[in-house]
Computed example of a mutant assay.
Amino acid sequence: MSPARTVLIVGGGVSGNALAVLLRRAGVGVDLVELSPDGNVQGSGITLQGNALRVLREVGVWEEVRRAGFGFDTLGLIAPDGTVLHVAEDIRTGGPDLPATMGMGRPDLQRALAGAARAGGARVRLGCTVQSLEQDGDGVDVRLTDGTAARYDLVVAADGLGSPTRALIGIDDRPEPTGMGIWRVTAPRPAGVERTDLAYGGPAFIAGYCPTGEDSLYAYLVEPKRDRAELPPASYAEEMRRLAAGYGGAWKEIAASITDSSRINYTWFHRLLVEGPWHRGRVVLVGDAAHACPPTLAQGAAMSLEDALVLAELLTARADWDGELFAAYRERRMPRVRMVVENSVQLGRWLMDGVRDADVPGLIGRTMAVLSERP
């Protein structure tokens, strides 16, 4: 493969930055554009399963992630009053030398990946994105919103759930709400909280928290989605405290710390799975631009990272960057991604429908067994 090849990555999130690192390592020229002026360094916390950590290690940021986050190997199921009902050993989907789960601040993960992309030689521009593109059999002519233009051998749409690039190339799939909304907040970590604990039932469908560092965690409450126009951002702290008040144990301390509405994030759960080809000519989708699911299995970032790993592997191993390569990428990813999307949605549907005898442990166990295999 000629080292003169160039790729434009649209979107500087998890998949975009990981792909930039892997392609630069192989000598590919990489430009990365990110619409957010601050480089998308925002959000509360993130839960990373072992299969995500496996990719982060291959990208070269595992040690930074390990230092910034909090690893653990068990999952607690608790009653709304805080009583521990069961503690399960998590499957180490990334292999025996990585934790089953790592919690960390989402901004910390973003900084690690963005720093690695820049250190690897990716040319990064913030505050701009694709305005238009025209392609032929050999490349893509791109005009950016900052007025510059260039030609690339490949354009990768890593610009998220609402991907403008996906729409620009005529892929009409759009994300659909699943019926749930989630409140997220960062908070001090109460003494004794050393794993994720989940309570099903109470004022919300799910009340959970995940340690993200020596002194921090992020907490979340999942409920039926609401009209966001009726939720003034200034009311977020009061509303989340109201929901949290229905839970005991560590939630008492967590709820008391929820005072700053600007630190709270409220979003809906969405489902997306592009059923047709994930490319048009020399423009290809990765991550949330191709698929997204509720975080009920904590696999969103993992699937995006695996996309980047598989696409980079194919691009650096094959001489021809053509439709056959992009079809092979989709065919390799689709069964795994479909399983995660459908199972994540199913877990949420059981909760919304009030199914009491659902085989939640079985579904999770079967999914994690598959994810233990390399993508």
Rank of each mutant, 00 (worst) to 15 (best):
G276M: 09
V33T: 08
R67K: 12
A112W: 00
R54M: 12
V340M: 05
L109D: 00
Q131P: 00
I78F: 07
G120L: 01
G94N: 12
D81H: 06
A150T: 09
T145P: 02
T259Y: 03
G71F: 14
D307E: 08
R366M: 04
L217I: 10
R356T: 14
V14F: 01
T259W: 06
L48K: 02
P294N: 02
D97K: 04
V28L: 13
D38H: 13
R228S: 06
V55H: 11
A319I: 01
L53F: 02
V28F: 07
V185Q: 05
P80Y: 09
R332L: 06
E238V: 04
A255D: 08
V130M: 10
G160L: 02
E34V: 09
R336A: 05
A150P: 12
I46E: 02
G69I: 07
E324C: 01
R242L: 13
R242H: 13
P190K: 06
P211E: 05
R123C: 05
I264H: 01
G120V: 00
D215R: 15
L32E: 07
D136W: 07
A369K: 11
T129K: 04
V130A: 10
Q131S: 14
S344L: 06
H279N: 12
E342Q: 12
Y152S: 11
V55Q: 09
L272I: 13
L113F: 10
A234G: 15
G179S: 13
E275C: 04
R330A: 15
L272Q: 10
G147F: 06
F70A: 10
F269K: 05
L351S: 11
V65W: 00
L272R: 14
L315Q: 04
D146T: 11
R174A: 15
G137T: 12
G71I: 08
G50K: 02
W268L: 14
T47N: 13
G192C: 03
G29H: 15
V33A: 11
D141Y: 09
D136G: 14
V55D: 09
L314R: 13
W268D: 15
A328V: 01
L133R: 11
R67H: 03
D138W: 07
V140F: 09
T259G: 09
P99H: 06
Y236Q: 10
D159V: 03
M352L: 09
L161D: 03
L221S: 07
R143N: 05
A116I: 05
R242I: 00
G115Q: 06
F326G: 02
Q131N: 08
A301N: 02
R336P: 07
G95T: 05
L347F: 03
L297Q: 08
G76W: 01
A191F: 02
L351Y: 03
L231R: 13
Q135Y: 07
V124K: 02
L98P: 03
A149K: 11
E306T: 10
E324P: 00
R25P: 14
I91C: 00
L109E: 01
G95P: 06
